[in-house]
Design a protein around this nucleic acid. Sequence first.
DNA 1: TACTCTCAATCAATCGTTTGATTAATTTTG
DNA 2: CAAAATTAATCAAACGATTGATTGAGAGTA
Lengths: 215, 215
Amino acid sequence: MEKDKTDKKDHILDVAERVFSDYGFDGASTRLISGEAGVNMAMLNYYFGSKEGLFLAIFERKISSFQTLLQNIGSDETTTSWDKLALCIDKYVDRIIVNNCFQKLINREITMSKRWDLTDKITRILMVNVTEIKKILDEGVRNGSFSQDTDVQLVIASIFGTKNYIINTPHLSSLIIGHDITEEKFMEEKLKPRIKTYMKRLLKAYLTTGNDNTK
Amino acid sequence: MEKDKTDKKDHILDVAERVFSDYGFDGASTRLISGEAGVNMAMLNYYFGSKEGLFLAIFERKISSFQTLLQNIGSDETTTSWDKLALCIDKYVDRIIVNNCFQKLINREITMSKRWDLTDKITRILMVNVTEIKKILDEGVRNGSFSQDTDVQLVIASIFGTKNYIINTPHLSSLIIGHDITEEKFMEEKLKPRIKTYMKRLLKAYLTTGNDNTK
DNA sequence: TACTCTCAATCAATCGTTTGATTAATTTTG
DNA sequence: CAAAATTAATCAAACGATTGATTGAGAGTA
């Protein structure tokens, strides 16, 4: 039946996403993935053509929901630049921690400088988000609500970098935070609101320093 | 001769460090490494026992220089907390961009949650730096030069996260910055000072907001 | 000779992928 | 409607290629 086929493909993608994120693209063998998913090895090639096809299919599945998320926020004419940015941060922290292992997956493979075909595709996906944030920041600087000295490009690096650091190095950041951050309850109830508060205060302080709109 | 042997081992480690950082641990084959280094494949096992031994040897070589870097700064009694932090940032930006591919290497492998032996070693190395920065931040909060509301642990995530984001995802950050960041001249003359300036302004704004020492 | 270093050749294991056969589902035909 | 024909899905087995590692012979030195 049609539905079962989609379900099975989705199931394979779910499993592959986790296995890839645990072992890396090269480290995760097709035998391991098919084994974990409980399907025959040949099914991977039957459905996705190749290992790389499977890998890219994981991304394709995410693109659509990625793109619409931030665009709605940015196009709202009624809210201030700061409120847009604050909203982006909230949504982003929410989202990114749900897609935990997908993010790890992305950030591991994009650092492989000798795999142009893969990194190019990934880069293009990530740039969608970057561009949305950049638009908001540029607008804020232009209309004077953010400081004229704002280094927009590096602010972007801080926003994504801070979040990535926490998510991608769970062993290390658990040591820093002093609590196991992979524990879902702690992440949801404690760390997530804390990251949101921190990020907003950090950016507000930077963006409004030396700015008369701080009154 | 003794010296030649050390030189050759060092040369292999240099090459392996780059190849590992470009292809990842699994992606970098021993044939590729030995080929790039211009030595016979068996030399890798002869000198380092195994592929993993070679990998770990790269880390061992760095540990010593890692540890002494920041400790001298933190123990200086005459400078203020802020000046210590600013100095750390300067030194760190300088250093990290020199050890570019080593950093990529570290940050890729530490995200592999299924390789405890490796990630443990790496985590321990990185914590040395974290602890030094944390000491300075804690001191600043205690003596009142930094805001009492400072989220020290997340500030650390921002410091390392921002830098990692730029260094580890060169394709993406080159797009964001609008210039090829792997180009050494640009990195050295333009981006490095810019990152230093930005990081200091970002942290100063955050750390001194809602603080009477901002006068 | 005794020792370290270097090498091509080779090892078993694993890799991603393909195959051909078999079963299940769907469509076509009488 | 039921039998036949067609298509889709699934599987075990095997493919050639590549992996990390080992071997034993030879080169160079002391």
